[in-house]
């Protein structure tokens, strides 16, 4: 575990906490894409299939449980909690899951490190995570009305990806045989998707103005 990996995991954890805070305390999910949250459930469910079969550390297992549990509970709140569900921008959040999932399934079947069930599912989760934020970014662009917590949530998620890239660079130079092209390329694609959002986030922060995306 290096400092970049830890910083990445902590920003990821913070992003989930910010979102839960918004949903749990303010009872609002305005501006949050249910499609993206459902895709994250699928990402974690397919990636952590090994949760009971391979043990790395208490830290790893605990974090897996946290990410699985939090993503499930966010989706549950948005779908079934009456007050929260009322604030959901259903008409704007129209991205089709299959439009993202199908190419990821095909790509995972074609490009993977090993052709085993667990490995293909793991690879699928990497590809899907790379694009899972797209419905959220589309929703932001449509509503244009971004509250602070939603902005911080996406900022922290993007930060998590940035730290993971630093972690890979660090590990590449410090550990022998550490080469994972599929993880790196899909991770890089994922981080690049945040570039546009980051640009406007910093702009609004610099000018001390409310975050607004151009139409």
């Amino acid at each position: 575990m290096n400092i970049f990996r830890l910083a990445g995991d902590m920003t990821h954890l913070a992003s989930v906490l910010v979102l839960l805070l918004k949903i749990h305390t303010i009872k609002s999910c305005a501006g949050v894409s249910l499609k993206t949250q459902e895709l994250y459930v699928i990402v974690f469910a397919t990636r952590y299939l090994d949760i009971f079969t391979s043990f790395v550390s208490i830290y790893n297992s605990l974090m897996k449980l946290i990410f699985l549990g939090s993503s499930f509970s966010i989706v549950w709140y948005m779908r079934y909690h009456k007050a929260v569900h009322r604030t959901y921008d259903r008409e704007q959040d129209t991205f089709r899951h299959w439009f993202l999932m199908l190419p990821c399934i095909l790509l995972a079947l074609l490009i993977h490190e090993k052709f085993t069930f667990f490995e293909v599912m793991w690879t699928f989760s990497l590809y899907l995570e790379a694009v899972a934020i797209l419905p959220q970014l589309v929703l932001l662009q449509r509503t244009r009305n971004i509250d602070n917590l939603t902005g911080q949530y996406i900022f922290l998620l993007g930060g998590y990806r940035g730290f993971y890239i630093l972690n890979w660079i660090y590990r590449y130079f410090t550990e022998p045989h550490y080469v994972h092209w599929i993880t790196w390329i899909s991770g890089l694609v994922q981080t690049l998707l945040y570039a546009d959002f980051f640009y406007y986030y910093f702009l609004s922060w610099k000018n001390n103005k409310k975050l607004q995306l151009p139409a």
């Binding site: 990996r5 995991d9 990821h12 090994d50 391979s54 790395v56 550390s57 790893n60 974090m63 897996k64 990410f67 793991w122 993971y164 972690n167 045989h177 550490y178 993880t183």
Partner: peptide
């Protein structure tokens, strides 16, 4: 080597 296949990232 087999050890490098351990998935230790989240």
């Amino acid at each position: 080597p087999e050890d490098d296949d351990v998935k230790d990232e989240l």
